Amino acid sequence: MFKKLLAVLVVSFVLVGCGDSGKTIDFSSKSAMQQSIKEMSEKLDSQERNVFQQSIVKVAFVASLDSNNDEEKLLQLLKSKLGGKTAEEIIKEYGSK
């Protein structure tokens, strides 16, 4: 189950663009999370989109290691690191420099 969630998360970031400057990730459900990431992704240019996707993957990878295969803990870690942040804030905080 844990690997499925991580795979869904990574695929979500790879398949979508980046988005609305005021939009944040909705962690109320997996589908809401995916949809909000898609909406955030759609409006960034290709360079910003790539950095955003790399940032999300980086956060998801670290959270997956820290969660010890506990899906609920993984979601909590992701929410604590990404919740309430816009695409631009995520890029600024976790983007490669």
Rank of each mutant, 00 (worst) to 15 (best):
Lys3Leu: 02
Leu5Phe: 09
Leu6Asp: 03
Leu6Glu: 06
Ala7Val: 11
Val8Ala: 03
Leu9Pro: 07
Val10Thr: 05
Val11Glu: 01
Ser12Phe: 11
Phe13Thr: 13
Val14Lys: 02
Val14His: 02
Leu15Tyr: 11
Cys18Pro: 13
Ser21Pro: 04
Lys23Ala: 14
Lys23Cys: 14
Thr24Phe: 08
Ile25Met: 10
Asp26Gly: 13
Phe27Glu: 01
Ser28Met: 01
Ser31Asn: 13
Lys43Val: 14
Asp45His: 12
Ser46Arg: 09
Glu48Phe: 04
Arg49Ala: 08
Asn50Lys: 13
Asn50Met: 12
Val51Gly: 05
Val51Thr: 07
Phe52Ser: 00
Gln53Gly: 07
Gln54Thr: 12
Val59Thr: 07
Ala60Cys: 09
Ala60Gln: 01
Ala60His: 05
Phe61Leu: 15
Phe61Gln: 08
Phe61His: 10
Leu65Arg: 00
Asp66Asn: 06
Asp66Met: 06
Asn68Ala: 09
Asn68Ser: 13
Asn68Thr: 14
Asp70Gln: 00
Lys73Cys: 08
Leu75Arg: 01
Leu78Tyr: 05
Lys79Tyr: 05
Lys81Val: 15
Leu82Asn: 10
Lys85Cys: 14
Lys85Ile: 12
Thr86Asp: 01
Ala87Ser: 03
Ala87Gln: 06
Glu89His: 09
Glu89Ile: 15
Glu89Gln: 12
Ile90Leu: 02
Ile91Ser: 08
Glu93Gly: 08
Tyr94Leu: 07
Tyr94Thr: 07
Ser96Pro: 08
